[in-house]
Simulated scan of single mutants.
Amino acid sequence: MRFSRNATGTLFVGGAMALTLAALAYPGMLGLDKVTTDQSRIIANTQWGPLTEQDRDFVVKVRAAGLWEYPLGQIGLQKGSSKGVKTASEHLVDGHAALDASCRKIAPMLNITLPNIASPQQEGFVTQLKGETGKQFDTDFANILRMTHGSIFNTIAKIRSTTKNSLVRALADQANDTVLDHITVMEKTGLVDFDQTLFNQTTPPKLPQSDLTPPPPAAGQPEVVLAPPPTATSTPLDLSGLTGGGPAGAAPGPSPSAG
């Protein structure tokens, strides 16, 4: 079954990252659109460099991506009917477990609140694929994930080239490697319809921000942990010795061990 424009449209509509601030409020609006008209606005000065609104949103986006792509990888291991899809599923689980560990490590260091649930749009992708089997599952799995990884790949490049925060820069390096790997394994399935997927990637339908925004965690809710697989090959960030990146006189933050 081809990943059609109509099917994708239905999918999107249906469902479908001591500070100078005491705490950073959970961003009210995330997703593919900007939170404010100026995402370069500095919201905290840390010992690892200034933290901008887009830096914070990037950490949250990486976390949210894992919250739906990791379980979808687990589903793919069970439902995938081709070797390529099963291999891609292994890469999803392995890569996002390590990325998630990095997000959970640096978030408290930067005082960023992370979501425990992906956005409604992202959860909609999972719901759709849970209801599919066989070749339809394999094809939609490869195309949806190629599209979403292609979209965040551009965001990673922007963050990596502009952030002045060394923790966010390290996360962007890891995310770049992981997402490129996931793009590659999706393409190796031989199921990607590039014309349709790139159209959906570059011309997404307009959705309300509530569909694109992962909800904040409920008060007192334990943090969701994406456990690495027994045969994990990806590793979280090693932050030992990672300091600096900020202007002279920046307020000190917690030590790296706090993450």
Rank of each mutant, 00 (worst) to 15 (best):
S4H: 03
R5W: 12
N6K: 09
A7M: 12
G9P: 03
T10F: 09
L11I: 01
F12L: 13
T20I: 06
Y26R: 04
P27V: 06
P27M: 01
G31Q: 04
G31A: 04
G31R: 03
S40C: 09
I42R: 07
T46L: 05
Q47D: 15
Q47W: 13
Q47A: 15
W48Q: 01
G49W: 08
Q54C: 12
D55L: 05
D55S: 01
D55C: 04
R56H: 12
F58E: 02
A65Y: 09
G73Y: 06
G73I: 02
Q74Y: 06
I75T: 12
I75M: 15
L77T: 07
V85F: 09
A88N: 06
H91D: 11
V93H: 00
H96K: 01
A97S: 13
A101L: 04
C103D: 04
P108K: 02
P115R: 03
N116V: 01
I117G: 00
P120I: 01
E123N: 15
T127Q: 14
G131Y: 00
E132A: 11
Q136G: 10
D138R: 06
A142Q: 06
L145C: 00
G150Q: 05
I152F: 08
F153G: 13
T163I: 08
N165G: 01
S166G: 07
V168D: 00
L171Q: 03
A175E: 08
A175G: 06
T178Y: 07
V179A: 01
V179D: 02
L180D: 12
E187Y: 14
E187W: 14
T189G: 07
G190C: 09
D193M: 07
Q201K: 14
T203P: 01
P204C: 08
K206M: 12
K206I: 14
L212R: 11
A218M: 11
P222D: 08
E223F: 10
S234A: 14
S240C: 08
L242G: 02
G244F: 07
G244P: 08
G245H: 01
G245L: 02
G246L: 00
P247E: 10
P256C: 07
G259D: 07
